[in-house]
Structures are given as C-alpha cells and as structure tokens.
Simulated assay, not measured.
Amino acid sequence: MTQDMLSNRAIVTVARQVLETEGAALQLMANQLPEDFCAVVRLMLATTGRVIVSGIGKSGHIGRKISATLASTGTPSFFVHASEASHGDLGMITPDDICILISNSGETQELRDVVAHSRRFSIPLVAISSKLNSTLMQAADYKLLLPKAPEACPMGLAPTTSTTLTLALGDALAVALMEQRNFKPENFRTFHPGGKLGAQLATVAQLMHTGDSIPLVPMDMPMKDVLLVMTSKGFGAAGAVEGGVLRGVVSDGDLRRNMEHLMSCRAADVATLNPVTVSGAMLAAEALAIMNGRKITTLFVVDEAGVPTGILHLHDLLRAGVA
C-alpha cells in the first residue's frame, strides 16, 4: 500500500470523526432543546423592533449568519460587532429591540457593554452559551443552553462542535418563526429578488404579457384572420374566446393537423378546447414544469372566471433565468 493511500485513509478517518462528532451533538440538542426555546420564539414574534445579534470571534461569524437568515426569512435583524458597540454602535440598539448575545464560555469581555446597555434600558436579553452558570447566562432574561458535547478539534480548543450547534440553533429559531408567520415562497422572494433564487420564486404575473399583446380571437373568426393574429402577435398561438372566457387555443400543431381544410374553418373548428391554463399567482417554475410536461411553449393565464389576463411563453422563462 502506497504512502498516498495511507495518507488518504487517515484524512478520510479524521473527516468522518469530525462529522460524526458534530452530528451526534446536533442529535443531542434535538433531543434536549433549550428550555427557553419556545419562549424566545414567542418573544421574537411579538417584538415591534429588531433582533440584534452580537458576538466576537467565531461566535461573531456565526452571529452574522444567524442575523442574515432571520432578516431574509421575515424577522428584521442585524448584527452589531461587540467591540464596535463600545464605541458608539450601542446607539443602534433601541428599547423596542431584542438582543441575542453569543458566547460559548459566557465570559466574553467584549460583550459586557452590550449586556449593561440591555439591562439599563430593559431590552430583552437572550444568551446562547454552553455554560449555564456563566456571567452572560446569569444576566440573561432567556437562556439557550447548548448541550455538553466535545469539540471536534482533537485538542478540544478550536470552536467546532460549539459553533455548529449555535448555527443550527439559529436556523431552528428562524424556521420556527417562518412556520409561525406562515411565511410563503412569495414572501421569500421579496427578500431575494436577485439571482437564480429570485428567478425561481418569480410568479407568472411578473413575467407574462398582458393587454393588447395577448393573441385573442372570437370562436367564430375565420381561420384566415386567425392566422393574421397569430403572426402579428408572435406567440405561435391564439386564444379562442366566447363571452370573454377562454374556450380554446389554436396552436401551430392545430394548424398542421387541419392543413387540408384550414381556410374553410373557423377558430372553433381548429382550436383545442378546454386548454391547460395557469393563474398569475402560480410560480413561474411551476408553469415551466407544466410546459415541459405537456410539451408546449405557451400558456394562457386566466382569472378565476376563466377570462384571459395574460400569456406566458417559454422564452419569457428562459430570459428570466427560471429554466
């Protein structure tokens, strides 16, 4: 066996040990959820201000992520650096806010001014720590105690398991709040308008063509006139309406199937009746799935009464980055 193979085996062994150690700690916390967890969720739901997260070092990095997750999932939040708080940033924290302070030891000196500020102005204080009898936990109104679990670092010094637990606890708070608020995909898109995620959460109404752009014809229109509408609108389809309600769709495929007697027909003779339609509130990604499943390139958008409100083409989805 080569030295490289021996080295790879050792690397894989260590990696597995780390993941198993941290995984076991997460399971332990799931089984021993902090006693004040539900109370903290209710506190955050009821606040009229923001959730201020603070920490130093690795705890600070984790705190930034927790704050960012909260803010992007409907809970106003921002991170205050513990050291900067002592040099003016305490002014960012108001009596309407909640403070979540993170310190694995519970004895982080840099947090003392934030703690004092919260006590002075009666700002609810939530502490995340693994030491129940620490200074921070004793000062807190709500205590989120991390379970006793070894760090994955072989020396037991580098924050590994403890930071993973804190990060996961922050995710648990954020998701619990999302569930309580009935946070929906459309709400999520409000905070994620850019990039691929924003595109995936776009609605049909945001991408569809409306007004005069919609190719609509009466059911009794002669096909020679229907062809002119289809050509001028450029969607390769026309919606056949009766009484303002969409009754059918004339597509390129319908034209080919009726080629022999096409010019003697009316829209009603050629159209596919009871066509598949979508609502404007549907996610664009769902509309794309329908197009792929039905092997079509256009979808008419209708309201609850069946009245056409728009048309969506596959190219619209591609340009928006949905596909």
Rank of each mutant, 00 (worst) to 15 (best):
K295T: 15
L28I: 08
N274P: 01
A127I: 00
V250A: 05
T75D: 01
M1T: 10
R16D: 12
S130F: 01
L145F: 08
K65E: 11
S54R: 05
M137A: 09
A289W: 04
F78V: 05
L255I: 15
D316S: 08
M263Q: 15
P150I: 05
I93M: 10
V278L: 01
M29E: 09
V217P: 02
I66N: 03
L165N: 06
A24P: 01
V217T: 13
Q32Y: 07
R181L: 13
S279K: 07
N274F: 06
S83P: 01
Q3M: 12
V12W: 10
A320Q: 08
Q17V: 05
S264Q: 15
A24M: 13
A15I: 15
I11H: 09
L45G: 09
M92Y: 00
V41F: 08
R112K: 14
H192D: 08
K143G: 04
T231V: 09
D269Y: 10
P193H: 12
G88W: 04
K58L: 11
P222Y: 11
Q206A: 15
H192W: 08
C265R: 12
V217F: 10
N182Q: 15
F235G: 00
G293V: 03
V12K: 13
E179T: 07
L312K: 03
T108I: 00
T231Q: 11
T277I: 13
I100H: 05
R119L: 06
D36Y: 06
K65C: 13
S251I: 02
P159M: 11
R247N: 12
S103T: 07
V249Y: 03
S279F: 05
L288K: 06
L132H: 15
S67K: 01
G321F: 06
D316E: 11
D36V: 05
V270A: 08
P218C: 12
G23S: 13
G321R: 04
